[in-house]
Amino acid sequence: MVKEIERAGIIVVHMCTVVPISLTVGANRIVPTIAIPYPLGNPELEPKEEKALRRKLVENALEALKTEVEGQKVFE
């Protein structure tokens, strides 16, 4: 899906937990996330902390969108 959106000419960032799959699929901008059932959260945290964690991950994704890349890049 990531690749087809990129192919259509829209910049896309892939947020996912299993980065090797994303690399194999051919995503260019990749942001690693927390866990498979909750990529953008962590149920062990307090709701406020959890949202802060999510915000950090999304900020990372926005940073990826602002960054020129040549080929694939994982934004840790």
Binding site: R7, A8, I10, V12
Partner: peptide
Amino acid sequence: IAKELKADCIDAVILTST
């Protein structure tokens, strides 16, 4: 989806996977 997003003048996509 991309075709519709283009028509809606979307600049960027965040795609999340589990």
